[in-house]
Design a protein around this nucleic acid. Structure first.
Lengths: 314, 314
DNA sequence: CCAGAGTATGCTCATATGAGCAGACGGCGC
DNA sequence: GCGCCGTCTGCTCATATGAGCATACTCTGG
């Protein structure tokens, strides 16, 4: 298009969007037909001369969501714009996850949840009465060894509480030192019943950790920095419900995996609905591993992460 | 309105503006009537949840222009948005002035112009052939004393050249030392004829200078820094076609005024069309004086200056 | 200079949209 | 409890708008 078309479309856009005149009026004013005005308007939108933006903390990027759904065959995707203040990002995504949970139909009878910073944040953002009578089951161990005691348990309890439901905690460490202990604790009636319920959950909600020394699993003493270094050397990009995966979503260390208490990755993969909440640049790699390996059916994330997932040539 | 209305309107706005669904479809999707969707959309626009912006260097702020016209009884007003890069402001306003000139109907037969940084910039931005056969008259003196010789003359010449017209320069200093010399030069045939033509111009185009030591009149040697200080002490805010005015648009120093060659302010005030081009924060005060004292019938400026003019309680 | 392709223009017509209005609803004072 | 007032809702109807199409225009290669 030439210069004068552009200038004219700017005039037209101003009169249409700022002065809310009709295309007909604008046509009369500028001496062109109303159809031309319509086309100039379309041109202005296409060229980005007119920018329409939805500014709201709860806004979503539907176009990106659609792309994610299509590209990865997801049930659903929720993508929030990146806020100007970077520190708000986690909150925005958690809020979106909470909104998604509250809007789920049918309401899950049994909801399996993991724990961690992100999950606890989601729990915080859920509104009181977001659902009624949901049974919340913890899907991986971790009670009490955490530095801030109770955080792990708190997540499940809060989510259940806000839905006037019942929380079922997994009374077990996340990772045990010996496989025998793990098998023994798994066969304990209380643990077994929780794991049984977890396997039957109608939906799962979890996040992922990055494979580095700052991991909450290191922080909690389940792993040493050296352990993590070794896992990274073997290709680990992060952990999902306490299990370390590589870029293809495969278990990095089968021995370690055997000693980890909780839902297995296969159960997550075959689940009807598993909601993956992830935010922030440092989690792009894990996010890619989770999404491409089919670990989730729903993703809740920020636009930058979504773009990074879509960027792949694949 | 309550929280849920707001959230709903965000959803609606997304579906309407980003997904370009019809209000009907959105209604079906969210389980509300299409009329409610329309109202939510109106709400979203009112509340600023939806922001429609026209991003283009030649964009204008029509709402502000209308306010200016109404408040000050102007024939017309042109207001351009403030660019992100501050240094581009002058260029944008000059471009707008050039566009305005080119769009003037009827095309002025005789155009009176002053000179200076701004005017020369306007001349630069005029397109070749912006009009045909316009006679351009210089309305205030200043030839050759300027440090960059020819600048003053150049403006008129370039404007005329680009309209395949003729330039009439005022062969006189801007300010003379003695009133007798001024009267003498004014009665010179060449000067008198130019002034005569200037008085008959069908439109005037001029800017204004700030009353401070950096003034081009000081720079050119017509005034000393001390002179300007004295003028400021007497209330001068700036100069228009070489004549210093106070905040009310009155001549500050009648003696000095008598020694200034060129069109008088009264002639400017009674002119059919006089276009005032002004940009930048340091000129807000002069701009106010010019506009409130009826020196111009058309103003071309930036949004910040326009806002400053409108801010007044008046 | 002409033929042909590609593009721009102005139309018809079906559809989307906003203004204005009557009835429903909900809170409040008596 | 009852009527009143202000607000919200869903409607009708006139109008604004976009899709699709036939025609006019323009540029290119022969």
């Amino acid at each position: 298009m030439n210069e004068s078309t552009e200038l004219l479309s700017v005039r037209v856009a101003e009169l249409y969007y700022e002065e809310s005149k009709t295309q007909d009026e604008i046509g009369a004013l500028l001496g062109v037909t109303r159809w031309k005005v319509g086309r100039l308007l379309a041109y202005a939108r296409d060229e980005g001369i007119v920018r329409i933006e939805i500014v709201h903390p709860r806004a979503r990027r539907l176009a990106v969501e659609r792309e994610l759904r299509e590209r990865f065959g997801l049930q659903d995707a929720v993508v929030v714009p990146v806020p100007i203040v970077a520190s708000e990002l986690g909150g925005r995504v958690s809020q979106a996850a909470a909104d998604f949970l509250a809007a789920m139909r049918p309401v899950p009878r049994v909801l399996g949840v993991s724990w961690g910073r992100t999950l606890s944040d989601v729990a915080e953002h859920l509104a009181m009465g977001w659902a009624v009578g949901v049974k919340v089951v913890q899907i991986n161990g971790g009670v009490s060894l955490n530095r801030r005691p109770g955080t792990a348990a708190n997540t499940a309890v809060m989510i259940a509480h806000k839905a006037s439901g019942q929380a079922m905690l997994l009374p077990s460490p996340a990772i045990l030192e010996r496989i025998e202990t793990k098998l023994a604790i798994e066969s304990d009636r209380t643990v077994a019943s929780v794991l049984g319920l977890a396997a039957e959950a109608s939906a799962y909600l979890y996040s992922a950790g990055v494979a580095d020394r700052s991991s909450v699993l290191v922080d909690s003493g389940y792993l040493t920095s050296a352990d993590v270094d070794e896992l990274v050397r073997k290709g680990a990009v992060g952990d999902v419900v306490g299990r370390y995966i590589d870029a293809n979503g495969n278990i990095v260390d089968p021995g370690l995996n055997e000693r980890t208490v909780g839902l297995g990755l296969d159960e997550l993969r075959t689940a009807q609905t598993s909601i993956f909440v992830v935010a922030g640049e440092h989690k792009h790699d894990v996010a890619r591993a989770v999404v491409t390996s089919g670990l989730c059916t729903v993703i809740v994330t920020d636009e930058a992460t979504a773009q990074s997932l879509l960027e792949e040539i694949s």
